[in-house]
């Protein structure tokens, strides 16, 4: 569980699905869609001699075995001398350790086989913010065979002003999420109390994520970027046990109690739920 200072999502209400869509069209040509997107990548900057650096990396991976899981990594090779031997082999060795390389920057064009790692990006002037790799050996026991720790259970209420971020999977909260509190999960969010604050599920592009709660009084629910504010939620569901999920681009909300459907399920024809997408 990471407690952080709350941040504001750049929300743009409206009916547009992709707020970052650019549509080009004229009378004769079919139009194509372009989307802008930015992702957060880790930057690894190896130093010569590479063998020593690999040993240090091995020690780091041993301390935090899941740190690199699923995270895109950009290799900053600008710090290596031009005569470094077998850089391509070195990158393959990194991939063998489960590091997902999405590109390189600052690579020397003379290095053999380097083009296989994609067109090198120009070395950026900005070094980026240093990240501390968490020491997981004591915090989380080694995952049992076949199972990875991908859920977080919080036994206390999440109070106003608190922010829980868990990118790896589902979050289960036994208490309530207070007004002004925020829970952000890579997977689904289950709330066994009242949901009065903000719930943001499917953070890393998981459209299958859902939000469940015993009492729906949320200020904001977001699944994979599609959001709905309290104003737009079906009034009949407020205060009820409910779930929210995505049907394509539409956020749907229904009562969890099957006897309590009808108009309360938020899917009645003609209901135009104002919603938008944030990226």
């Amino acid at each position: 569980m990471i407690l952080c200072t709350p941040y504001r999502l750049p929300l743009t209400p409206g009916t547009a699905r992709h707020t970052s869509d650019y549509v080009t069209t004229d009378d004769t040509n079919p139009f194509i869609r372009l989307r802008g997107r930015s992702v957060m990548a880790l930057v690894l900057a190896p130093e010569a001699p590479l063998a020593t650096w690999l040993t240090a990396l091995n020690a780091q991976v041993a301390r935090a075995p899941t740190f690199f899981d699923g995270r895109p990594v950009l290799m900053d090779l600008g710090g290596l001398p031009a005569n470094t031997p077998d850089v391509a082999g070195f990158l393959r060795a990194l991939e063998g350790r489960g590091i997902r390389i999405i590109g390189t920057e600052g690579a020397h064009p003379s290095w053999p086989g380097i083009e296989a790692w994609g067109r090198p990006l120009p070395a950026s002037g900005k070094a980026g913010r240093p990240i501390t790799v968490p020491d997981e050996t004591h915090a989380t026991p080694a995952p049992a065979a076949g199972g990875e720790v991908n859920s977080l259970v919080i036994e206390q209420p999440v109070r106003s002003g608190q922010c829980v971020v868990f990118e790896k999977g589902d979050v289960t909260i036994l208490g309530s999420i207070g007004s002004g509190a925020e829970v952000i999960a890579g997977g689904s969010i289950h709330v066994y109390g009242a949901l009065r604050g903000r719930a943001i599920a499917g953070l890393a592009g998981n459209a299958k994520a859902r939000i469940f709660c015993r009492r729906m009084e949320a200020e904001l629910v977001v699944i994979d970027g599609v959001y709905q504010t309290a104003d737009d939620m079906p009034a009949a569901l407020i205060g009820k046990a409910a779930q929210a999920w995505l049907d394509g681009d539409q956020m749907k909300m229904t009562a969890l109690d099957s006897t309590d459907t009808g108009d309360a399920n938020g899917q009645s024809p003609g209901r135009n739920i104002r919603q938008g997408r944030r990226r």
């Binding site: 109070r159 106003s160 002003g161 207070g178 002004g180």
Partner: peptide
């Protein structure tokens, strides 16, 4: 009530 909720969170941390 909301401000009290915030304070309770701080009492706990």
């Amino acid at each position: 009530v909301r401000d009290s909720d915030r304070i309770i969170g701080m009492l706990d941390s």
